[in-house]
Computed example of a mutant assay.
Amino acid sequence: MSEDQLTQDEEAQAEISATGSAFSEDELKRLTDDIVGALKTVYDPEIPCDIYELGLIYKVDIEDDRSVAIDMTLTAPGCPVAGEMPGWVENAVSAVAGVGDVNVQMVFDPPWTPDRMSEEAKVALNWY
């Protein structure tokens, strides 16, 4: 079993990994890029930034059977879309070619902080 860890940039904290040897390096890169692209289509409705750049995606595991398990969080546990956002993420990633079942789990440990935002998000939100 091998593990490849890829991140969007130094600030992004999402871990994307694949287990086993079912994927060539090129296919894993394509899947990873496409999954990140899909995650970037989901926006926090209260913050004008996508959930990936906000650092709300903690982990993405791509299994040999092409199923995808995602651990994500929210900017606050009482977020009004807490019940809906996992479905938005599941729908976005399920639309990626080559992806099987998608399971999104909401986690709150570690709690989200603005430090998890990418440089792109910080610039977009004028966070400096």
Rank of each mutant, 00 (worst) to 15 (best):
P45Q: 10
Q13C: 14
K40H: 06
S17A: 13
L74D: 07
I62M: 08
D71Y: 04
V42W: 00
P86E: 03
P111I: 08
V104T: 05
I16Y: 10
D50C: 04
P86Q: 06
W127I: 14
Q105E: 15
T113Y: 05
I35T: 10
A121F: 02
P86M: 03
V104I: 06
M1E: 06
Q13F: 11
D4H: 10
V96A: 03
D115R: 09
A121I: 07
T32C: 14
D9M: 12
S2D: 10
E15C: 09
D61H: 08
D26C: 01
D65F: 00
L6K: 14
R30M: 12
R66F: 07
L6C: 06
N126C: 03
D115E: 15
E3C: 01
D50G: 04
A92M: 03
E3M: 11
T19R: 14
D61Y: 04
R30G: 08
V60T: 08
M106A: 12
V60S: 04
Y128S: 09
D61A: 12
A12W: 03
T41R: 13
A18H: 07
A12Y: 02
C79L: 03
G98L: 08
V68F: 04
M85T: 12
V93C: 00
A69V: 11
L74W: 09
D101V: 10
A14K: 09
K122M: 05
V93W: 02
N91M: 11
K122D: 14
Q5V: 15
D61I: 13
Q105S: 15
D64Y: 06
M72W: 00
T41A: 05
D34H: 11
D71R: 01
Y58T: 06
S24L: 05
I16P: 00
K122C: 06
I51C: 00
G98N: 07
E25P: 01
A12E: 12
E119A: 15
D64P: 07
D64H: 05
E53C: 01
T7R: 15
R66W: 08
D34R: 09
L28G: 00
E46L: 07
Q105G: 09
V36H: 09
P110R: 04
D33F: 09
A95F: 06
S21A: 13
D64Q: 14
M85V: 12
T32F: 01
L28S: 10
K29Q: 14
A22R: 14
I57R: 00
M106K: 08
S24H: 01
I16N: 04
N91E: 15
G37N: 14
Q13E: 14
A76W: 03
Q5F: 11
I35S: 08
Y52K: 01
E10N: 12
I47A: 09
A12K: 04
V93A: 06
D9E: 11
K40P: 07
V36K: 11
A22I: 05
E119N: 14
V81Y: 08
G78E: 12
G78M: 11
L54C: 11
T32M: 03
